[in-house]
Amino acid sequence: MGNMLFLASALIALVALGVSAIRFFRGPDTLDRVVAFDVITIISISLIAIIGFIMQRSVLIDVALVYALLSFLGVIIIAKYVERGL
């Protein structure tokens, strides 16, 4: 029962990932894609954590932490680049 609930929420998060990918492909501007990318990475963090929970691998939480750090840096660097170049 409990496991089913977690599986269902993982599936809903996967659907959310697909929905925000629509904005990622449609654009129309670079920054629109960056916003969609930001949302996609945050959803991926949740997905990594829940896959770790379902598979009972605690290592994946560390992966999620590093992924959060890197995606934050990535978004900020792209925004700075769009604003005035590197």
Binding site: S9, A13, V15, A16, V19, I42, I43, S46
Partner: peptide, 8 residues
Amino acid sequence: SLFLLLGA
């Protein structure tokens, strides 16, 4: 996860 879907 419902809030994540709303955000998307």
